[in-house]
């Protein structure tokens, strides 16, 4: 969703609904200007400590429920975007990350209240929504178009604006926004959010974590 974060006004006009009106960079996949993430200088920091210690601090903790990482099969050194040899260009390592992370967390897609999905390009969001089981393979487009990823939808995503609207801080801003959702301090807060999925780089390896409220 377009960012509501203060200090990010120049990008606030970026949204899924007005992307179609921006200039085309490629067809027939129709990647347009707003389908590409912003180039941004910036920084984020997260403090990781034990849950016990975190309970003593001034801010309420966001608990790291589980983390996972996976790669595409047969990765090769130095090959960042293996479109020339990976089995299918519409499958990401997210499929394997999801399987492992859900198993470690003891949770499934239906348990996720809000998600921060790595969005270097809009297309990587569509593919990951499918890989993470929020919709069927091939149905990422209709899922997004029907409003399911908005604040009133079944899975609000990228509530800080993400890389497409807030800024490209290499996934770190997604983690920070995940923490805000769990604390209830997001500028696009999902009411009662207690679980937040945060995903990172789609290729060639990918990783993700699930944050939960301390309960």
């Amino acid at each position: 969703m377009p960012t509501r974060r203060p200090g990010t006004r120049p990008n606030a006009s970026r949204s899924w609904t007005n992307t179609a009106s921006t200039r085309s960079c490629s067809t027939p996949t129709s990647l347009r200007l707003f389908d590409f993430c912003l180039e941004t200088d910036g920084a984020c920091a997260v403090v990781v400590t034990s849950t016990e210690r975190a309970r003593d601090l001034r801010q309420s903790p966001a608990v790291i429920r589980a983390v996972a990482q996976a790669s595409i099969p047969n990765p090769q050194p130095g090959i960042q975007f293996p479109t020339l040899f990976r089995e299918s260009i519409t499958s990401l390592p997210a499929t394997a990350v999801a399987r492992t992370l859900y198993a470690r967390a003891g949770l499934g897609p239906a348990d996720i209240d809000v998600a921060q999905i790595y969005d270097c390009f809009s297309i990587t969001v569509l593919l990951q929504l499918e890989d993470w089981g929020f919709c069927k393979k091939g149905e990422g487009g209709p899922f997004v178009a029907s409003g399911e990823i908005g604040l009133g939808g079944s899975l609000p995503i990228n509530t800080g604006g993400g890389h497409l609207s807030e800024g490209y801080i290499h996934g770190m801003n997604h983690i920070v926004e995940g923490v805000r959702q769990i604390r209830g301090t997001s500028t696009s807060q999902v009411a009662g959010a207690e679980t937040c999925l945060v995903t990172a780089t789609p290729l060639p390896p990918g990783s993700a974590l699930i944050l939960t409220a301390d309960r």
């Binding site: 200039r23 085309s24 960079c25 490629s26 067809t27 027939p28 996949t29 990647l31 260009i89």
Partner: peptide, 9 residues
């Protein structure tokens, strides 16, 4: 043909 894209930029 496996896939393709038209570059407009």
């Amino acid at each position: 043909v496996y896939s393709w894209t038209v570059v407009e930029h």
